[in-house]
Design a protein around this nucleic acid. Structure first.
Lengths: 328, 328
DNA sequence: CTGAAAGCGCTTACAG
DNA sequence: CTGAAAGCGCTTACAG
C-alpha cells in the first residue's frame, strides 16, 4: 500500500499538500493539484483510515450492540442502519451479546477504544444504565427505554399504542376472550405493549387474560399449549412478537383449530416472514427503516441534534391486516 | 479517557513499562507491575485500539461483505462468524452491498484502509475476481466460488451433493415429475445445486424440468404459478432455497393443492423459519455454524492456515426431513 | 499557497 | 528489568 509520503515524493510536493488536495481543506495551486491527483492515481493510493482516525478521534464507525442478529427484526434493523450509515460514509461494527451483561459492557468499552462515533444499543438489561451513562461516546438506545435516564437518547416506536391497536383490532374482529402473551416484562417495549392491551381491556370491559413468554419459538409454542388448557373459550391471541405469533399458529394448527375461524392471532413487528407464511399474519408493524435511519443519523449528525435537545424519537406503529384476523 | 502517559505518571514508570505490563510482552519488576495495575484501575484506563492498530497493522477487525443481512441465511452466517470472532477478540464490520459491484469494491477498499485483518465475502459477481485477488488483505469467499482463482480461499458446503440429495429424496418419496427451481446460474452454489439435480435425473432416467428464479419471495411465487401452468403433472418441487420454497408452498396452498399429498417440496439452507412454518419444511441443511467459524478462523489464524496450503474448505450438506415431503 | 514540525496514543527495537 | 527515542500514517496549526 502506497503511503502519503510516496505520493508526495512522486508529485514533488509535501505530504501536507497531498493531504490538502485529498480533503479539500485548503486552496492548492492548480498545477500542483493536478500533479498530486496524477500521483494518487498512479500509486493507487488510498489513505489509511486508522491514521486518520487516530488524529481525528473519529473512526467513522457506528457500533451496533444487539441481543442477536439472527432475530429477523434485529436483522432488518441492522440492515436499515447499515444502509443509512453507508450513505454517509460510516461503517457498522456488529456485536451480538445474547443479552449477556458482561458482553454488552465489553462491547461498549471496545467500541469507545476504537474511536467509534457512537453506539446503537438494544438491551434488555436496565442495570446497564449507569454504565451506559458513563460511556465516553454517545449511545442511542433503540426499541427500548431505560427508566429514569436523561443522558441517553431513545429511538423506538410507540409500543403502548401498538398494544392498544392490537387489542382494539381483535375486539373489532369480534373476539370476546382475548389472551395476551406478554413478553418479558423487564423489556420496556414488552411492558408497553402489554399496558396498551390492559388499558383497552379496562376501557372496553373485557377480561384481562395473560400468559408469560420470552421472544422465542419454543416458549411461544409451550405457552400456546398452556393457553389452550387454561382458557377454554379463547378466541383471540395477541402475541408479543411475530416469532411467537407464528409459533402460536403452529400449535393451533396442530390441534386442528381453525385460524382465524375459531381463534384469531395478531403479532408484532411485521417481519418479512409475516406476509410470507400461510396464512399471512396480521400484525402491528414497526417502521424499522425509519427507526434505523434515525438512530444512525443521531450519531452521524450529533452536533446538529445536540442543539435539538430532544431525548426521545418516537415513531408510530401501524396495523397490518392480513389473514389471521377477520374484520367484521 | 485516560492515556498510557497518565497511567505511567501515576505509577511512576515509563509508558513503555505500562505497555509491557498490559501486554505481558516482557518481564517487569513485580513491585512496579503492581503500581501499574493499581494505576490502571484507578484511572479506568482502556488502551486506545486505534493507536495500537496503527502500529500493529492489525485492527482485530474482520470485514463481512454480504448481499443483504436481511436474508435469514446470511443473518445466521453473520451470527456464527461474530460469535467465533468475538471469542478470539475480533470485531465484525458489516457491509451490505445489495450485490452492487461498486459497493463491494468500495467496501473492500475501505476495509483494507481500516487495517482489517481479513474479509469474508459472499458475492454473486464473478467479475470481481481480479479485484479481490489484488486486495491487500486476505479474502475468504463463503458460500460461493470464483472460477479459476487460486489466490483466494473458499469455505462452503457441498452444494452439488446437496442438489443430489434433494433430487434423490424426492424420488425416494415417490415423485415422478420433479421441477427444479434453479437459482441464478451466475451464482456458483445455485449452479452446483442444479447440477446435482440434473445428474440424478440422468442417472435415474427422470425428465429434467426447470424454471428460473432469483432468491426472492416475489420471484418464488411468480415462478410457482408458472410451474403450475407449464408442468401439469408436477408432483415434486426443488426450490433453490428455503425462502423460495416457502413462497412456493404459499402459492400451492392458495391454489388448494395439498402439500405433500399432491405436490412435495424441498428447500435449501434450513433457515430457522423452515421448521417454524406450517407445515414444517423439508430441506437440505447447511452447517452454517461450522462454515462461519471456519471462515473466521482462516482469518484469525492466518499464519497457521498459511502452512496448510489448502484452498477449499468444504462441509457436508444434510437432508432434514420434515413435513413437506413423505418418505414411502 | 505551502512546507517543516508537532502530535494523535500506542509499541518495540535499542542501549544500558 | 527499564527508559528514551523513533515510528505507525495521517492532519493541522504555524510561520513564511
Amino acid at each position: 500500500m502506497a503511503s502519503i509520503r510516496e505520493v508526495a515524493k512522486l508529485a514533488n510536493v509535501s505530504p501536507a499538500t497531498v493531504s490538502r488536495v485529498m480533503n479539500g481543506t485548503a486552496r492548492v495551486d492548480e498545477e500542483k493539484k493536478q500533479r498530486v491527483l496524477a500521483a494518487i492515481k498512479e500509486t493507487g493510493f488510498v489513505p489509511n483510515e486508522v491514521a486518520r482516525s487516530l488524529f481525528k478521534k473519529s473512526a467513522k464507525l457506528i457500533g451496533l450492540i444487539l441481543p442477536s442478529i439472527e432475530n429477523p427484526f434485529f436483522a432488518q434493523l441492522a440492515g436499515a442502519i447499515e444502509r443509512c450509515a453507508d450513505k454517509h460514509g460510516y461503517r457498522l461494527v456488529l456485536c451480538n451479546t445474547g443479552s449477556v451483561t458482561e458482553k454488552e459492557k465489553a462491547a461498549m468499552q471496545m467500541l469507545s477504544s476504537m474511536n467509534a462515533d457512537g453506539i446503537i444499543l438494544t438491551t434488555s438489561n436496565e442495570e446497564l444504565r449507569e454504565f451506559t451513562e458513563n460511556c465516553s461516546i454517545p449511545i442511542i438506545v433503540t426499541d427500548r427505554v431505560f427508566q429514569g435516564s436523561n443522558k441517553l437518547k431513545y429511538v423506538h416506536c410507540d409500543h403502548y399504542k401498538g398494544g392498544r391497536m392490537a387489542a382494539e383490532h381483535l375486539i373489532d374482529c369480534g373476539c370476546k376472550s382475548i389472551v395476551c402473551i406478554k413478553g418479558q416484562q423487564e423489556i420496556s417495549s414488552a411492558r408497553d405493549r402489554y399496558d396498551g392491551y390492559r388499558d383497552v381491556c379496562k376501557e372496553r370491559g373485557i377480561k384481562e387474560q395473560t400468559v408469560d413468554s420470552a421472544y422465542d419459538f419454543e416458549e411461544g409454542m409451550k405457552v400456546t399449549e398452556e393457553i389452550l388448557e387454561t382458557f377454554k373459550d379463547v378466541d383471540g391471541i395477541i402475541a408479543c412478537n411475530d416469532m411467537v405469533a407464528i409459533s402460536a399458529y403452529k400449535v393451533l394448527h396442530k390441534n386442528g383449530i381453525d385460524v382465524p375461524g375459531k381463534i384469531q392471532i395478531i403479532g408484532f413487528d411485521d417481519i418479512a416472514l409475516a406476509k410470507l407464511m400461510t396464512p399471512e399474519l396480521t400484525t402491528i408493524g414497526q417502521p424499522v427503516k425509519e427507526i434505523g435511519a434515525k438512530a444512525a443519523e443521531l450519531i452521524i449528525f450529533k452536533d446538529k441534534y445536540a442543539k435539538e435537545d430532544k431525548q426521545e424519537y418516537i415513531f408510530e406503529a401501524s396495523l397490518v391486516e392480513r389473514e389471521t384476523t377477520r374484520d367484521i
